[in-house]
């Protein structure tokens, strides 16, 4: 019988190897230009997260979470952080948080303007959309290949992977949010003589904010997943705990990493999801009963979302 192995094999690996070497050599300034700001901000964030003392951090996180979402979610966040500390992976969790927070900053700074640009020009959107499709259907695992080839291994290349993987949802939702603004309201803006800038800042962006925050939620979760996956290319953090546990067949250690990851993912998801929920009336009434919010945190606003986070976190391992 004629077997697949009998076919002459194209030396694709060699071609790519050479191509990438050429790219790395000739476009070095370009890649450095990408890497430098990421490296700097990551270094700063990492330093801050590790420098702040544990109790202060928990209290600060509690207050911020309360401000951004609800008291119930803030309480849940604080408790989760304490549990993570008691699991003995506080430092790793802080590294993961710095990876995620850095990614959020870059995704917002790059993703939102790109999203706006896409919303205002069909031509741009037609170009960007297939790229986003490819980026979002590529398994996070495969992401690592080009990153390693172009940026090498370690925490900073890992962060590059996190940023590139987490940006697409924000771009998509920003574009969607702006395009979804009621036509009549946009026309009201035009009819009263708004120019393009006024239209954007007075009407389109403000009305797109709930959708953009929904995209931010997706971006945070993607960043969470990727920040774990990039342990495979040598990035530090909770992912590394799991990876090392598995490598040494230390199931207990791996599980500890896993639990911490799930808790962190839930905290970030609940806080950002709550931000995306539009509040109509004043905030005090919204805060409602503590118990109800706690229940909601566990059940989740969107029932399958928690499951999804968990499965994605697992899948990431």
């Amino acid at each position: 019988m004629f077997k697949a192995d009998d076919l002459a094999v194209f030396p694709v690996d060699l071609w790519i190897q050479q191509g990438v070497s050429w790219l790395a050599l000739n476009l070095r300034p370009f890649f450095l230009a990408i890497k430098w700001p990421i490296e700097s901000l990551l270094g700063l964030n990492d330093w801050i997260f590790h420098a702040v003392h544990f109790p202060i951090f928990v209290v600060a996180f509690f207050l911020i979470a309360w401000r951004l979402s609800t008291l119930g979610i803030a309480v849940f966040s604080a408790v989760s952080l304490i549990v993570i500390a008691m699991l003995g992976v506080w430092n790793e969790a802080m590294t993961t948080l710095s990876l995620i927070s850095t990614a959020i900053v870059f995704c917002a700074v790059v993703g939102i303007p790109i999203g706006i640009w896409c919303a205002r020009s069909d031509r741009v959107w037609n170009v960007v959309r297939p790229i986003l499709d490819i980026m979002q259907t590529t398994p996070s695992f495969v992401y690592l290949v080009p990153v390693v080839m172009l940026f090498g291994v370690g925490t900073v290349p890992g962060e590059v992977a996190v940023v590139t993987a987490a940006a697409p949802p924000l771009i998509r939702f920003t574009n969607l949010g702006i395009r979804m603004v009621e036509r009549e309201i946009v026309e009201a803006g035009l009819a009263f003589g708004a120019d393009r800038r006024q239209l954007l800042f007075e009407i389109q962006l403000p009305l797109a904010i709930p959708t953009i925050l929904g995209g931010l939620n997706q971006t945070v979760l993607t960043a969470m997943v990727l920040s774990v996956v990039v342990a495979m290319i040598g990035a530090e953090g909770l992912g590394l705990v799991v990876l090392q546990g598995l490598g040494r067949l230390d199931v207990g250690r791996a599980a500890v990493g896993g639990i911490a990851i799930v808790l962190l993912a839930m905290v970030l998801d609940r806080v950002t999801q709550q931000m995306a929920t539009p509040r109509k009336s004043g905030r005090p009434a919204e805060r409602g009963s503590l118990m109800r919010t706690v229940v909601r945190v566990f059940r989740g606003g969107r029932p399958d979302e928690t499951v999804q986070v968990v499965t994605r976190a697992k899948e990431a391992l």
Binding site: E182, E184, I185, A188, A191, F192, L207
Partner: peptide, 10 residues
């Protein structure tokens, strides 16, 4: 200036 059917308020 213009008044809209569905008000078109912000």
């Amino acid at each position: 200036s213009m008044v809209f059917q569905h008000f078109a308020l912000l």
